[in-house]
Amino acid sequence: MSTSHYLETALGAARAAEAVIRRYWEQGVEVTLKADESPVTRADVEAEEAIREVILERFPEHGFYGEETGKTRADAEFIWLIDPIDGTKSFIRRTPFFSTQIALMRGGELILGVSNAPLYGELAWAERGQGAYVNERRVQVGGVEHLRDAAISLGNVKSLAQGPAWGALGGIVGEVNRTRGYGDFCHYHMLAAGQLDLVVESDLNILDVAALSVIVEEAGGVFTQLDGRPLGLDSTSVLAAGSAGLHAEVSRRLTV
């Protein structure tokens, strides 16, 4: 497996963030609230600073869009999309369902993704045209075509229940083979590896899923917003599937 300079840099940045995260995981960290009342810690901020240092040392002309530090050079051809700890609430409560998300966008197209979940023990990555990997093993979606055979995972169920597609989603859940709610990075890693067939999620932002979308698509899956539109910087929902047929069926039913 060959890696580009971009992927080498992203993996190095993920390792730098992991060192920060593990230190605070072991010693503990104070929690504060942002303006939107979501939690943030020194681990979030310092992990993003570590990522920024690695990336911009190698590519100073690139743009950077971080969860904690905002946007710089937003008009650049290459823009890095960063969530240093996606799943801060899990980190705070000392459960391993959090990850570092690093994606690279070129001219509006997502071309690279790294998803590192150090306490869970999985590092996933993908680059356009190069396949998807979890812990250095190439992975592929399951390819299930029919709801009756599919395993689905739901994320942010509270906001899904408040949305217009809740009734249709209930019908889908009633037809699938298995329903779970793994959440955050975990169900996307599982989808890419053929361990799940559908993921439906709402109340998120592009920094949460940009890297994961590249990983799922390079594993052979389909990754869009709930209404079937491609991901963009303003995306707030996901419909991801392990086959085009399954995605088309669920998308049709959710948007009727």
Rank of each mutant, 00 (worst) to 15 (best):
G121Y: 05
D203G: 15
V144K: 02
N177C: 14
R178H: 13
V222W: 13
A150D: 00
L119R: 13
E217D: 01
G221K: 02
E217T: 06
I172E: 08
R138T: 03
L169M: 03
Y133F: 04
V176R: 07
V214A: 11
V144Y: 09
G129I: 01
L204K: 07
D184F: 11
P164F: 11
I206F: 04
E122V: 14
V222D: 14
V209L: 11
Q130N: 11
A161F: 04
P164S: 07
L169I: 05
S159K: 09
G131Q: 09
L212A: 06
S153D: 08
E127M: 01
V141N: 03
G220S: 14
V134D: 04
N156W: 01
A193F: 05
L160F: 03
D184Y: 15
L198H: 04
G170C: 10
A161K: 08
V214H: 03
A219E: 00
R128W: 02
Q195L: 14
H146S: 13
Q130C: 12
Y188K: 06
I215P: 11
V222S: 14
G170Y: 08
Q162T: 02
A124C: 15
A192Y: 00
L154P: 06
L147F: 07
G181Y: 09
E127F: 00
Q162Y: 15
L207V: 00
E122G: 10
S213L: 11
R180F: 06
G142F: 01
R128Y: 00
G170T: 07
R138L: 09
G142E: 09
A219L: 07
R137C: 06
L198N: 12
A117W: 06
S159N: 09
G163M: 08
G220M: 08
T179E: 08
V144Q: 08
L196A: 05
V134L: 02
Q162C: 13
